[in-house]
Design a protein around this nucleic acid. Sequence first.
DNA 1: TTGCTGCTCATTGTATTCAGAATTCACGTA
DNA 2: TACGTGAATTCTGAATACAATGAGCAGCAA
Lengths: 220, 220
Amino acid sequence: MSVFKKIVAPRIRLADEVYSQIVDAIHKGDIDARKRIVQEKLASELEISRTPVREALLRLEQEGILEMSGRGGFVIRQIESSEVLEIYQARAAIEGHAIRLLTEQKNTKFIAQIEAIITLEESRDLTTASDYYDANKNIHRSFVERTANRYLLEMFDQMWNRGFSFHLFAAITDDELQKSLGNHHQLCSVMRDGDPAAAEAAMRAHIQNGLDLQLNALAA
Amino acid sequence: MSVFKKIVAPRIRLADEVYSQIVDAIHKGDIDARKRIVQEKLASELEISRTPVREALLRLEQEGILEMSGRGGFVIRQIESSEVLEIYQARAAIEGHAIRLLTEQKNTKFIAQIEAIITLEESRDLTTASDYYDANKNIHRSFVERTANRYLLEMFDQMWNRGFSFHLFAAITDDELQKSLGNHHQLCSVMRDGDPAAAEAAMRAHIQNGLDLQLNALAA
DNA sequence: TTGCTGCTCATTGTATTCAGAATTCACGTA
DNA sequence: TACGTGAATTCTGAATACAATGAGCAGCAA
């Protein structure tokens, strides 16, 4: 029985650090849609060799966030108009099923936790589209997290990462952004009622409203 | 109006070829669970440099198929027992929603196509667990493909790739493998009835049966 | 025999170099 | 001025080299 704890030093790869920086820059909107990310140039900026830069970029390409530009370098992959619907459909599948699973579990502690998170996120001082995106994501993620299903959570993150890399929320007006934070408590009420099918239908309707909001914003 | 066609020569990366070979080898069961895949050694076998080998292996690590062994090299990631349920839950989300979308569309041509695929797959000469896995995957994929939702399809493939990398089907007896091909036509009947909720429930029940079969096999 | 220490080897991650392909630019000609 | 050609530049993919880390093995002492 030692008083010392085993030290687990994760091997940090430079490629992972590069990946995170690129993702953050995309998230903040710091990378213009036509901006080419060139391996050698980015490596010079970061003052590391090209190899980990390349590894990070290839990973982002694999994830569909970036694509290779015909003129060299990688650019942020532009969304096709049909993809908005596809993303929201995929969300309906994931999050609809998540709330169904949670409702079947009838775990009142989970419901209370989710409600606390909703209240917390709604009370934040939100000013940018990115802020609203984060708040919405945190709320929705709080449902999927509680399914304790790593694959649902992984898919959830993939879909929401698409949203931010395509700057979907940036198209929405401030009024509508505020509205985007409404109605989440109602999802918890439906869960409390204990009918899995009704809960799933409520989540699907909620997401459909988000889609309508998104499509209106993109059409304007 | 030229008589010549534009030549599009896809840039084939060695890393992609390595990736495919590893995936095939896993699929065929050619790689033992404890077998370490070492970058330099595999590169020698393939008579290429280590770089594309590394890229392929890192990609497989990222996809959760491989993990780094404490003794160097990569090994096939072993499934935790809870993951079987998680995979089937994720499938219920994806495939349940897919059949719901298809049922809402009431496209009789799609239903006929799916039925033709079911009939074709059932008529194959199937002998190995891998054969049955492929047949089942083709049938289930035929539903998701027709939603024309790239994200649902992408997630579908990810879940099924997990299944084969974990050799889930290999644990099932021959009798039960034959049974695994039953009842797919019934899904089409339910779609024809036109009730999306009923179709989704039928797909979820179908997948739950598959889960039961799988868990029984793993317990034996 | 067992446990500890030091050394060696294996493996990885990163840096650097090389070669090839594609794009861009400059110059010459019609 | 516009178009075509050749050269230069850019960029990528792969190969090679180097350094660091960790695991395994061998030797020695208790």
